[in-house]
Structures are given as C-alpha cells and as structure tokens.
Design a protein around this nucleic acid. Sequence first.
DNA 1: CGGAACTTTGAGTCACTTCAATCGGTGTGG
DNA 2: CCACACCGATTGAAGTGACTCAAAGTTCCG
Lengths: 257, 257
Amino acid sequence: MLTRLHDPIELLRHKMEGVAELTNAERKALAALPIRVVALAADQDIVRQADKSLQSCLLMQGLACSSKVVGDGRRQIVAFHLPGDLPDLMSLHVGTVDTTVMTMTPAKVGVILHEHLRELFANHRLATAFWRSLVADAAVAREWTVNLGRRDGPSRTAHLLSELIARMRDIGAVNGDSFDLPITQEELGDALGMSTVHVNRCLQSLRRKGLISWVGATLSILDRSSLAEAGDFNDEYLNLSRSAAPVGAVWEQRRLH
Amino acid sequence: MLTRLHDPIELLRHKMEGVAELTNAERKALAALPIRVVALAADQDIVRQADKSLQSCLLMQGLACSSKVVGDGRRQIVAFHLPGDLPDLMSLHVGTVDTTVMTMTPAKVGVILHEHLRELFANHRLATAFWRSLVADAAVAREWTVNLGRRDGPSRTAHLLSELIARMRDIGAVNGDSFDLPITQEELGDALGMSTVHVNRCLQSLRRKGLISWVGATLSILDRSSLAEAGDFNDEYLNLSRSAAPVGAVWEQRRLH
DNA sequence: CGGAACTTTGAGTCACTTCAATCGGTGTGG
DNA sequence: CCACACCGATTGAAGTGACTCAAAGTTCCG
C-alpha cells in the first residue's frame, strides 16, 4: 500500500476516501487535478506565517509541522503533518496561513493551485470531503490544547505518541507496531511545550515501563493499550469524519427542545 | 449596535460580513434562514461530546465554551464562544462534535438545521463565508495551543484577556476599554490550564502592574498595549479572514519554485 | 579520525500545584 | 432583620514537576 501511495493522486484519493465515499466520476475528477511535485530538504519552510498564498500543498513523503514563534524566540509546534495531509488547505479560503509550515525530514510535496481546487469544488461532495479534512485537523488541534493544558509530561508524551502511531497506521506507515519517526527530542519538546531535557526523561520513563522503544529513527510501541492508558488517549477524536459519512441517526432533542 | 445584534439574522449577517463581502441577494438569503431561538440558563450543555447532530447553533447572547474532560476528571476549555459565534458549525460536515459545548452564563442560541444551511450553500460565496468562519476559529485554537505550550502564567493570562477584549470589540460589546466578563477564576483556569489559585495570583500581578481591573463582572483594560506586550499578543491571527476578502497579491514563489 | 548534532545525566532553582484556612458577598429561611 | 449556608476570591505554606545550566556520553557523518 505504501508504495502505491507515493503517487500524489492516489494519496489524495486515499485521504478523501477516508472521510467520504467517492463515486467513480469523483475519483476521475480528483485524478485530473494538476499537481506539481516538489522535493524539499529537511527543515525547509513550505509556507511562512502571514504569507499570501494562491496554492496549497499536499505532503507526499516525509514529515512536516506547523509552528509559531513566541516573543522570547521559542517556538511551539501546533501540528505534525504526515503524508496525505494538506497542511495549508486553510489558505484556500483565507488566502494566508497563520503558522509557518516546514519540513522536518526530506520531503516531497504536491503543489495544487487554489483555482484548480475551486473548480473541483463545483462538485459539492468533493468540497465536503475537503471540508471534513479541515474539520478533522481542527479536532486534532483541540486535543493538543487539552494535552498541553491538562496532562503532565509523561502522560502528555504518551498521548502524542499514541496519536502519531494511530495516524501513521491510517496511512499504512506502521509495520507491526513500529514506524519511522526521524525527529529529535527537541522537536518533540517544541510540540509538547516542554524542554528537551524533560522530554528525554519522560521518554525514559515510558521506556522503563516497557511501553515504547525508540532506537535510531524507529519508534516501537511495545504495549499499545498501556501507552494509551498512560496518555489518557482515546482515538475517537481522530475518527470523527470517518464515522460521519452517513449522517443518519436522529438527533435526540434533549436540551434544545 | 449591540441592540440591533440581538436579532439572530443581523448577528449572523454581521459575522459573515466580517469575513466576506455580501451582495443584497446573499443578505436576503441569510435573512430567509429559519432560526429557532432558545433561551438557556447558565451551565447548560448545548451539545455534548460525541452527540450526533442535525443542527448547528448560533450563540446570540451570553457566553459559552467548548471543553473536553480528561481521565482524572479535570476539564480543559478549548474555546470561548461569544455572541455571533457558531460553536458547533463543524457538526454540519462531520455530524458530530468532539467537544462539549455549554453555556457559561444565561444565554440565547439560535438553532439552525443543517439542511437549511446546506440549501444556503448552493451559493458558493455564502459557503465560503461560513468556511472562513471555521478557519478563523481554528486559528484561534492554534494560538491557544501556543499560549498553553510556551507562555508562563501571567503572560498566558494577559494573552487570553487580550484576545477576549479584541473579539468583544469586534461584536461591539466593549464600552471604552471595559466589557462584561461574568466568569469565575476557576473557569478561566480551565481555559488557561492552570489551577484556580494560580489564576488568582496571575490576575493580581496584572492588577498590580496597572494593566487591568476586574470588579464584579466588569473587566477593564487599563493599559491595552502593555497588556498586549505582557501577553505577547498580536491580533493578526484574529484578522486572517478579514484581510483575505480580496485574494489579490501575487504569491512569491520563494521556495517551491 | 574528528567534529557536529543529539541524547543522557546531575544539581540547583523556580513556577506552579495542592491543601487548607479565611474572607467577603449574596441569597434564603426563620 | 438576622443567622446561616454557599460560592467565589484571596492568602499562606509546603510539596513537586518542570526548567535551566552545565557537563559527559553517543551516534552519525564527512
């Protein structure tokens, strides 16, 4: 599966089928989308905060992140982007991004002009699929807020790693319970809002408990359910869009009656 | 202005004109939207996490918040909702919400059926306006993540209060530099990811520096620019959609050339 | 082989938490 | 009209999680 997903169109199709059912006509429309593939080194800006943008990009290979820098120069990563993600899709509607999107590893991105996306959205169902992907990203962002606000170091770390393996699994990037995570503890700290030293100690604590092993760039989850428990992790928020495809159930008019 | 905005349609129109230019036809379409107004007491759930939903609501009066509860029972507020906000607009596209939305004060909400919104979205420009409002909310959420991850107590508090007065000003709810903020320090702590005690001390520190005064339910910003500086606050992220209305400028093909 | 980048460790300090008590205002029943 | 209860704000004191600083150990790579 992973090999097939090196093709930008297939990747995009897989992403959209994750949140909505597509007809053959819609798949064809997606396939007709002009995408220019660009290879980037690690630590390259893709879009910078406040840039005007007439295009959005599809991450195809590698890892990327969105971050903001605060007054004292430290940065906070607000999202990790995996292959298949559209890190700056929001610029389609507001023409700018409020974060800096950069690669964390060598990467390939597919550049899609907004005008082509807009043409695609003549089909409402496709527009909805993209809309859902934006909503799904927002759900992840809210969970990060919870993570930073209410969980201590070890738990916060466990939660983030649980999120990552879940998302990696969705795109078929997990072998057994291991996946490639070629990022530094400093970057992890920027995402967790913690110092590098403390990240290191939290990871050790997870290792000592036999929950994970992280050698080189390979992270292995040794005990997925215990890790989830340690991180107070529940994957529902990752699957909102998926379960939503058929909106059927009657809404119980509890309070707003 | 505030009085006029007690009408749900006017409130919605004001919201949407904040992010996009509307034609008279579009204003008329908005005005035709069936909205059922419901009055709620304080601390009532509007939508609960994981509820299936066939409608979204427009907050008309009062304050509301979205929150999630973590394993040990503490909660994290992930967003404050002001009059004019659509706290659960995302349920339009995924059929669920991942947070619990509840009132913090007595409130009025306008209930709008998803089917009516979808009809409205036959007009692409109106759909875009709603889309932008969702993107704007996501930008605020990302800034909260930064705030929780990288700013200490006093600064974090100053930042949130700066955000609140800026958003209150947008809806005309600010008199001079004062506005009604009828929430407890505990609620503020749930938003800031801090204990009540520490919120109290951070507020005192801001008071001692002459930046704010908070008596009863009235918060006054005594020195707006110093408060912004103390909170490392820059309102750009709140105005993304506004500045975006005409997407004109040519995007400089810096790195993705 | 040497150097740079990253990880790991230790020690001291500080921000923030928790627990506990007090204070003040507000509403309520007697 | 007062006594009481309740809720929220405030204060103090002790404990702890996380940070900073600094150094040493590792891995990677040219």
